[in-house]
């Protein structure tokens, strides 16, 4: 990665320091010892199954359908979900887990034979991926971290996991391994921070997605489906 440029910094920061009545800070600041940490209290002692219940209940509030399945029944569940949302074109990430979970026969054979286009993200084809995502009716992704409290899935972009798979299609289907459930955003933020501190680059785009896109900008009436997906479905996979 090429180093970017920084312009006009010193005068700007000197002005801040002088307003604060001191010299510029140069030595590294230690992590502040916060007096309050209320975020750790939320769902503190909940078991995984309790977290699943919280997630499931919250899905009702966020206009998101929720099904639970296990690895054995996943292909059937996914097939049914795809049918529920119109059996039209699909775009997916390129992700080994689809194969590991036994979805190849469905995605690479059964659906195409029914004339349902299934496009798998392929970075070597450049902008064609975005055209395909824009055309697709359904986008399928996988949650890396799942927040029970708010019903949120967390997606990390990379070359095989395009950002637009979750935004451009009309329906957003997210596969959620049960092992990814945590109480709330607090744990996700820590995981991300850990990753960074261990020297890994954080993805250029991390998406916290909670149901379909919506707006209340017209007379405060809720409209579901504005710029992003109109519908959202979570499929929870018991992988524990």
């Amino acid at each position: 990665m090429m180093q970017g440029t920084i312009q006009n910094r010193d005068a700007f920061l000197n002005q801040i320091a002088s307003r604060l009545g001191r010299e510029r800070l140069s030595a590294p600041l230690p992590r502040p010892a916060w007096q309050y940490q209320p975020q750790d209290e939320v769902l503190k002692d909940a078991t995984v199954n309790e977290l699943v219940e919280v997630l499931k209940t919250h899905c009702l509030k966020i206009h998101t359908s929720f099904v639970m399945t296990d690895l054995q029944n996943l292909p059937e569940t996914l097939e049914k979900t795809i049918a529920d949302y119109g059996n039209e074109s699909i775009v997916t990430w390129k992700d080994q887990r689809f194969s590991d979970w036994g979805l190849d026969p469905l995605l690479k054979d059964t659906l195409p034979r029914q004339n349902i286009d299934v496009y798998e993200w392929d970075y070597t084809r450049g902008a064609e991926n975005i055209r395909q995502a824009e055309k697709a009716n359904i986008g399928i992704t996988i949650s890396e971290i799942t927040l029970a409290e708010s019903g949120t899935v967390v997606l990390f972009s990379d070359k095989d996991r395009g950002r637009t798979v979750s935004f451009l299609p009309k329906t957003f289907i997210c596969l959620i391994p049960k092992s990814t459930i945590v109480p709330r955003m607090t744990q996700a933020a820590r995981i991300m921070r850990e990753k960074h501190l261990q020297g890994n680059n954080i993805s250029s785009c991390v998406n916290f997605i909670t149901g379909p896109s919506n707006s209340a900008d017209i007379e405060l009436e809720l409209v579901v489906g504005v710029h992003g997906p109109v519908k959202a479905a979570y499929i929870l996979i018991d992988d524990l």
């Binding site: 970017g4 409290e149 680059n201 954080i202 250029s204 785009c205 991390v206 909670t210 896109s213």
Partner: peptide, 12 residues
């Protein structure tokens, strides 16, 4: 809302 539909964290 506990969280809005989209919270996007971008880096570079």
């Amino acid at each position: 809302q506990k969280l809005t539909s989209y919270i996007t964290v971008l880096t570079g």
